[in-house]
C-alpha cells in the first residue's frame, strides 16, 4: 500500500513537471559556442530580479555590451558614449558635475547616478519611468540633449563594422544586428555591475572593525536615515519628497510625470548611498556639492509642504559631532574593488 502511494506521488510529480516544462516557451537555443557567466548574489543580498532567463549572461554578450558602453558611435557626433557620463572611477556617475554634458553643448536635466546593483532594481531613473533595464539605453541614445541619435542610425553604424558583426554573431548566434540584441548586450554588461565589497561590507562580514566614529555614524544612520536608505542597498526603492525646493529652471516634478498623480509631485527615487562619497554632486539635480550640504538640508533645509515625507517634515536633529560621524560612516560605503574592477573598464582595442 505504502509503495503504491509513493509510486503515485512520483507519477504526479513527473506529470506535473513535464507539463510545466512543456508550457515554458522561453527555450533558448544554445547559441553554440558561448560561455555563460554566473551571476553571483553577494552574501546578505536578496535574490535579484529575473532579468536573466530572457537574456542569459554570456562572456560574449557581456564583452559586446562593454564595447557598446564605451563606444561613441552610439551618439550622433561620436563623442558621447555612455561612459562619457558614467565614469568608472566615480562608480559610473558623472564625476564632479551637477548635470552632465550631452551633445551640442547641452546639459542633462538631472544628475547622472552611479550604476551598480541594477539587477535588484525594478524601475530606473530618478522618477522610475523606465520599467526594464533592457530598454533604459533608448532614453539617453534618443534624447536630443544626451546622445542625440536615432535607433536606426546606431544600428546602421554598427552594421558597417565587421568587428561588431562578428561580436553580435558570437554572442547571439546570428550576424544580424538589431536593437534588441544591442540592448540585451548592454543589459548584460550593466547587470554584472555589482558593488558589495566596501569597508561596510567587510565590517558586516567580520573582516574589519569600524573605528569609533564610523560605528557611531552607523548607529545614527540606522536611527535617522535607514528607513528610506535601507540596507543592504541603502535604498528602499521608494519615491519620496524630501522637502527640496523646485529648481525654477528645470521645473522637475519627479515621479508625477510618470504616474500623472498629483500625490507624486516632487517625489524622487531614494538613491542608493553605496559609493556616495565618490558620486558627488548630490540630489536629482546635483544641487549639493558635498555630503555636508545634504546633511544640512535634513537638519535645517527641509521645506514643510503638504507632500513632504513625514520622516523628514520636522527636520532631522543632527549635532555637529553626529554630522561628522555620519560622514565617516558614509565614507565606508565606497567600494574600491568595484571602481577598479577591470571587467568594467574601457576595453583595449
Amino acid at each position: 500500500m505504502k509503495r503504491g502511494l509513493t509510486f503515485c506521488c512520483m507519477l504526479i510529480f513527473v506529470a506535473v513537471f513535464s507539463v510545466i516544462g512543456s508550457c515554458n516557451k522561453n527555450d533558448h537555443a544554445d547559441s553554440s559556442g558561448t560561455t555563460s557567466i554566473v551571476f553571483k548574489t553577494p552574501d546578505g543580498f536578496p535574490p535579484p530580479n529575473d532579468y536573466f532567463s530572457g537574456n542569459p549572461i554570456t562572456k560574449e554578450g557581456f564583452e559586446l555590451g562593454r564595447k557598446l558602453f564605451y563606444d561613441g558611435r552610439l551618439s550622433r557626433d561620436g563623442n558621447f558614449p555612455c561612459a562619457s557620463c558614467h565614469q568608472q572611477f566615480a562608480a559610473f556617475a558623472t564625476f564632479d558635475h551637477p548635470l552632465s554634458h550631452g551633445i551640442d553643448n547641452q546639459f542633462t536635466t538631472r544628475n547622472a547616478p552611479g550604476l551598480f546593483n541594477l539587477a535588484w532594481r525594478k524601475e530606473l531613473h530618478w522618477d522610475g519611468g523606465i520599467n526594464h533595464i533592457e530598454v533604459q539605453p533608448l532614453a539617453p541614445i534618443t534624447a536630443p540633449n544626451e546622445m542625440g541619435e536615432t535607433v536606426n542610425s546606431v544600428i546602421n553604424k554598427l552594421n558597417q563594422d565587421e568587428h561588431y558583426r562578428q561580436m553580435f554573431s558570437k554572442a547571439f548566434g546570428t550576424e544580424e544586428i538589431n536593437s534588441q540584441k544591442m540592448l540585451k548586450a548592454l543589459a548584460q554588461f550593466m547587470l554584472m555591475m555589482v558593488s558589495a565589497d566596501s569597508r561596510y561590507d567587510k565590517m558586516k562580514a567580520g573582516k574589519v572593525t569600524f573605528t569609533e566614529a564610523e560605528q557611531k555614524g552607523y548607529e545614527i544612520f540606522q536611527n535617522k536615515c535607514a528607513t528610506c536608505h535601507k540596507e543592504p542597498f541603502f535604498t528602499d526603492f521608494s519615491y519620496r519628497n524630501t522637502g527640496l525646493s523646485v529648481n525654477p529652471f528645470l521645473n522637475d516634478f519627479g515621479r508625477m510625470r510618470i504616474t500623472h498623480n498629483a500625490e507624486d509631485s516632487l517625489k524622487f527615487l531614494v538613491p542608493s548611498l553605496r559609493n556616495v562619497f565618490i558620486t558627488y554632486p548630490y540630489g536629482h539635480d546635483g544641487r549639493f556639492y558635498a555630503l555636508s550640504g545634504v546633511i544640512d538640508h535634513y537638519r535645517s533645509g527641509v521645506i514643510d509642504a503638504p507632500g513632504t515625507d513625514p520622516l523628514v517634515r520636522n527636520k532631522i536633529p543632527i549635532s555637529d559631532l553626529e554630522k561628522y560621524e555620519l560622514q565617516q560612516f558614509l565614507r565606508t560605503l565606497t567600494d574600491s574593488t568595484f571602481i577598479k574592477d577591470t571587467r568594467f573598464s574601457q576595453p583595449s582595442e
Binding site: G129, I130, V135, A143, T150, V151, N178
Partner: peptide, 16 residues
C-alpha cells in the same frame, strides 16, 4: 524585435 522594435518610432523612451 520585429514589428515591436523601438526603432519603429512607436515607443516612449523616457516612460517605458
Amino acid at each position: 524585435a520585429g514589428v515591436l522594435d523601438p526603432a519603429n518610432g512607436m515607443f516612449w523612451t523616457w516612460s517605458t
